[in-house]
């Protein structure tokens, strides 16, 4: 349904470069990256709002720039900060969206209003980010479109709303829709999506099913040697980076600890603690400390 081949849009050193991915019906792809990585730009390309310098962005087999109006009859979107009409009430805005877009599902809208705890009373100008976001999501998800593009849908939301939205996105994906969402929080993508694409400085770093994240986890071992000299000697011998704190050493290894155990046999080890690395830490390996 959504196919991007070598998307390139340059704004000096910023932009997106040679970005390729695809999303089929029944898949939810989460594009993950820090602020300025090019996530929203990618979405705007798919919405036909930005013209590419190179590459091809297609939805339903149609070019996103030249056939935007046809594509958007089958797709819906919610921007990072929905631009609502300040003088309209929430209900008035949703009514307008229903008429403007056509194909609105009122039953679904009613259910979503309850599940996401959306208030439709009050003027849009007085709404905070969470309320605006919920209204934008309600508008996008109630349109019953084949593809849904969501820009940072959980940003600014409380934990309850985030959980509820993750469930809604999962249900939409299971109903056969193609979902593309962006986020800078790994946990959000892990909860809502089936696939993950990590981008950094406009380039694709990794693209894989969310389940595969656990396979690439590393294990971190805390080793306490009898002396700091022994720890230093081990650090010199060990092939990958070792963090030394006096007589203690920290090593991360991706596979079996067999080689580590064999190496440690030559030292006097007072203590060895091993554990699974969190996926958030795993993700940080790609991005340094830019991710929340």
């Amino acid at each position: 349904m959504i196919r991007c081949d070598s998307l390139t849009k340059e704004y000096g050193e910023d932009g997106i470069f040679d970005l390729s991915f695809q999303v089929s019906g029944g898949q939810a792809l989460g594009i993950l990256g820090p602020a300025g990585a090019g996530k929203s730009l990618t979405l705007r390309v798919l919405l036909g709002l930005i013209r590419l310098d190179a590459g091809e962005a297609k939805m339903f087999g149609m070019d996103c720039w030249s056939r935007r109006h046809q594509i958007m009859k089958r797709a819906a979107c919610c921007p990072a900060v929905p631009a609502l009409e300040p003088n309209a009430t929430g209900e008035g805005y949703i009514r307008f969206i229903a008429r403007y877009h056509g194909g609105f599902n009122p039953d679904k809208a009613r259910k979503l209003t309850q599940r996401l705890d959306i208030s439709l009373t009050g003027l849009c100008r007085g709404m905070n980010l969470e309320q605006r976001k919920k209204l934008g999501l309600l508008a996008a998800l109630s349109l019953d479109r084949e593809a849904v593009l969501l820009d940072e849908p959980m940003n600014g939301m409380g934990p309850l709303a985030r959980n509820a939205l993750a469930d809604v996105i999962r249900e939409e994906q299971q109903a056969g829709r193609a979902i593309l969402m962006t986020s800078h929080v790994l946990d959000e993508v892990r909860r809502a999506c089936t696939h993950i694409a990590i981008i950094r400085k406009g380039r694709l770093v990794v693209s894989q099913p969310v389940d595969a994240l656990s396979l690439t986890r590393q294990k971190v071992y805390h080793i306490t040697f009898s002396t700091p000299e022994q720890a230093a000697s081990f650090a010199g011998e060990w092939e990958t980076a070792v963090e030394l704190i006096g007589a203690r050493a920290l090593v991360a290894i991706p596979a079996s600890p067999q080689v580590l155990i064999r190496t440690l046999a030559r030292y006097t080890v007072l203590d060895l603690v091993g554990g699974r690395e969190e996926t958030e830490e795993n993700f940080l390996r790609f991005h340094g400390d830019e991710i929340v």
Partner: peptide, 18 residues
């Protein structure tokens, strides 16, 4: 104003010609 605050992008996210 809609061009600047994102309102135009919202209008263009529907199946209408520019």
């Amino acid at each position: 104003m809609p061009l600047q605050d994102g309102g135009m992008a919202m209008l263009l996210s529907a199946g209408h010609r520019r």
